[in-house]
Simulated scan of single mutants.
Amino acid sequence: MNDLVLPTIGITLLCCLLGVMGVHAYSSGKVQRQELLNRLSATGPIAVVGRRHRFAGLDRRLRRTRFGKKLELKLAATGLDLTPGEYFVYVLAGVAALWMAASSILTSFFGPLAGLAALWGANTFLNWQRTKRTERFINQLPELSRILANATQAGLALRTSIAMAADELEAPAGEELSLVARQLAVGESLDSALGDLAARLPSRELVVLVTTLVLSNRAGGTVVSSLRNLTETLEERKETRREVKTQLSQVTVTAYAVPGFGLGALLLLNTVMPGALDRMTAALPGQAAVIVALILYAIGFVVIRRLSRIDI
């Protein structure tokens, strides 16, 4: 046994040495790659950022389909660092996990229902992320309009003003305007670049701002005074939206609490009376009753959300 101590220590030290040499070789190779990119770049240093995306083959095939193109546009609007292929795989994994969890915790009858709920939840999550990012962008519109007005009044071109606003504003306005500036830099028209921006983040305020900029760019005119007036209007709408959201917060919580009570009742029933869900869903009348109850909960959720939605 003692004869194995020294070989073990030697092999451990050798592995540690090889690990240190590997880390050093990787880091030095990464630095050399960055220096090579900087030398080959005519516009200055290139920052290598981001991460390596997974499922590249699936992502390429998915992007060729109509569903993949719509999914790519929706993911771009959410600001998530996900490709359509990654999102598709993660959603399938979530559906499978919820299906198995519902089948094991409740009954096998609830497995497909949990899978459908997972699909609905994935789409709802994307819509919520896009709405959240759009609202953050809307809150930055008054400052964006003010920056554009000041830059235009100083004699800068509209394209230069947009690039300057992209550098000064935080995300998501800075990211979206940087994309618009890159589109303009490669020769895309101002109407098309701003139209893509309005399509990614649909809102009335952004449509008004885009229309003002496009019309001013086409016909000339007093873009400074238009942006000044638009800034005041956007500030007022921002405060109004904040007040309405605060007043309707209780209604929004109620919309999510009602289905939660139904799910909690099912779990409580299965805990108090083990096997009750098995007996209930074993017959066709019990399955029909469960489906009707879920449909009624869904209708109640949609109705409450519709009643709490106020267009400003």
Rank of each mutant, 00 (worst) to 15 (best):
A181C: 11
A193P: 11
R237C: 06
A173W: 03
A165L: 04
P172F: 04
E170H: 15
R237A: 09
L215N: 15
V208F: 05
Q183R: 15
L209P: 01
N229G: 15
K245L: 12
A199Q: 09
G155E: 10
N150C: 04
A198H: 00
P172R: 08
A149C: 10
A171V: 06
A181S: 15
A173E: 03
V180S: 00
I138M: 09
T211G: 10
A173I: 01
A185M: 10
I147D: 02
V210P: 07
A181I: 07
S203P: 05
R237T: 08
T222Y: 07
L230R: 03
L190M: 12
R159C: 00
L144V: 08
L179V: 07
A193C: 05
T160M: 12
V180A: 06
L184C: 07
R200E: 06
E239W: 09
V208P: 00
L169R: 07
L148K: 04
L190E: 10
R200G: 01
L215I: 08
D191H: 13
V224R: 10
L169W: 13
L194Y: 02
V207C: 05
E243Y: 11
T211K: 08
V186C: 12
E205R: 01
P142K: 00
T160Q: 15
S225V: 10
R228M: 12
K238M: 14
G174L: 02
V210E: 02
E239K: 12
E235K: 09
L156V: 06
L209D: 00
V214M: 02
T233N: 15
S203W: 00
E168G: 04
V207H: 09
P142H: 09
L177D: 02
G155P: 11
E205N: 05
E236R: 14
N229M: 12
K238E: 09
L194V: 01
V214F: 00
L227I: 02
L213N: 04
E168N: 11
G195Q: 11
A149V: 11
D196K: 11
E239G: 02
G187R: 07
D191E: 13
L197I: 05
Q153T: 01
R242M: 03
R237P: 06
L230K: 02
A157Q: 13
E188P: 03
S145Y: 05
M164N: 14
P202Y: 05
L194F: 02
R241W: 08
A149I: 10
L227H: 06
S192R: 12
L169F: 08
T231F: 08
L148H: 03
V186P: 04
L234N: 02
V224I: 07
L194Q: 04
R218Q: 06
R146P: 03
A154G: 11
S178D: 12
E188H: 14
S145P: 08
L179R: 14
L215M: 05
